[in-house]
Design a protein around this nucleic acid. Sequence first.
RNA 1: GCGCCCGUAGCUCAGUUGGAUAGAGCAACGGACUUCUAAUCCGUAGGUCACAGGUUCGAAUCCUGUCGGGCGUGCCA
Length: 556
Amino acid sequence: MKQTVRKITQAALEKLFQADGIAVSVDDLPKFDISRSKDVKFGDFASNVALVSGKELGIKPRDLAVRIMESMELKSSGISRCEIAGPGFINFFLSPDVWRNNLYLIHSRKEQYGRSSELSGPGILVEFVSANPTGPLHVGHGRGAAVGDSLVRLLRATGSKVDSEYYVNDVGNQMNILGRSLWFRFRELQGEALEFPENHYQGEYMKQLAAEFANSSEAEEIKDLDESAAVRITSRYACQKILEGIQDDLSMFGVTYDRYFSERSLHESGKLSECLNELKKSGKAEEREGALWFFMEDSQDEKDRVLVRATGEPTYFAADVAYHTDKMRRGYDLLVDIWGSDHHGYVPRVKAAIEAFGYSSDKLKVLLVQFVNLIREGQKISMSTRSGEFITLREVLEEVGADAARFFFLTKRCDSHLDFDLDLAKKQSSDNPVYYVQYAHARISSIFRIAQEKGIDADYTDPDLEALGLKEELALMKKLADYPDVLNEAAQVLEPHRVTFYLLELAELFHSYYHDNKVLTEDDRIKKARLYLVEAVRLVIANGLSILGVSAPERM
RNA sequence: GCGCCCGUAGCUCAGUUGGAUAGAGCAACGGACUUCUAAUCCGUAGGUCACAGGUUCGAAUCCUGUCGGGCGUGCCA
């Protein structure tokens, strides 16, 4: 709908310029905005076009607004009238037919309403979580998972072709430490008295893994091996098992990936050394004091970075250069990475890397997800990964459920710190926003169920929408009409939380309406129209929840 | 020290590519269930948008500085 208003405004501006012989191209003017009016007295939509253009053209905003309004072609546009208000806003009042017609659209498109069915957009790769396979996922990863997965759903819904990927750091020193940790725990089980190294993975899960390992065929194999050979085996074993555990946790959370991308494969395929050679050849990297350095001279990063250590081992950064280059070379138009905010210092480095390979750094968008504080009984729960004292994602899911957790993570912008209150997420009351939205869906479902049980005719085909004359009904219809714009704008700025807030607002309008107005009334005409309306609400709620990855229960 | 993010009602947070009178939930207070689910609704109260300047028709939003919190600043990942 917003697009329609924009087109009409744009056309009016062009027509006006032509009539006046103004030699300014509309494209050269500052971008104007079409926004949803906050207050009904300002109409349905408002434009600041006269305000932003007036200065450029040397015309008083209000005068310009009048001229624009006069050249608008409103016939069959759905706009019933316009007004000029304040310093020069143009307010658009839409005919009620627009909202009613939109209701028909919702019913004809059903779960496709608001979505773009043709995947015409650019190819996007969203990489998220990518936690090291050295231990179970914790709550912070859960936030990244919720944001990433919902973003993928959102981008797909709005017509982009999207792949999702998890980058697995399955080589390097930490894999060695992981393998050693298992090796130590395993030998402890065999009765050896050992001092467990402090900087190794101390968590309880390593002991369980060791017990599992003891029953495996690999356990026999390593008995006669020296440490480095044994650790190679325990390392691979631990990595694989832990990764499987992570996948289980994610699937419990409703998160799946198109691909798990192994860092090891970059080493083994030779892609990593290829990249380094290219950098050397192009003069972007050079050996110095035995190490290979990446030059950051033209980039935002503050100093040069090591790619290959003096020991000959490539750094994590080298692998990431190769990984991001590989992603670009696979032909994606946009890479979205979702990282914990503690990695923010890394952004300029990776952007510099893709630029070194000839891609614009705009092709990489990094969303930084802030930390999560877990709160129980009003107290912050402290966590530390190394010591193994942390609450896992799985524990949270078992305690509060995937729906509540996902919804909660998506009620905040990702760059703000988040307090996750376990007691609140568990509460089955209005305190807990997820139920508020789900309950609206359940209530509507229940109307149809009750009708069937009581033998009430709930057929809503060919309704007379003139029967929807209440202002609450109009408000609901307008809200439903906003949905496609909400999806598109959220997708454009990569902010799935906007969908959450939209759903809360829609649910609020519905609950209030439901409370005051009976749907299954005696009056057949009204009943039919209201059934038609609430079914549209139900469709949009189910639709929006599916983008958040939250279920839409039919009864609660 | 330098860099990035954040600071909005008692609490948790929206609103930030400049727009009209800064919003919601919770908590507080007062009301509504013989009704399609009260996991709901209605009302009251609550603000120096951290602070100080600047930019302009207009600033929570942009710029500069200050204060406070988080994170980063490795030949760690």
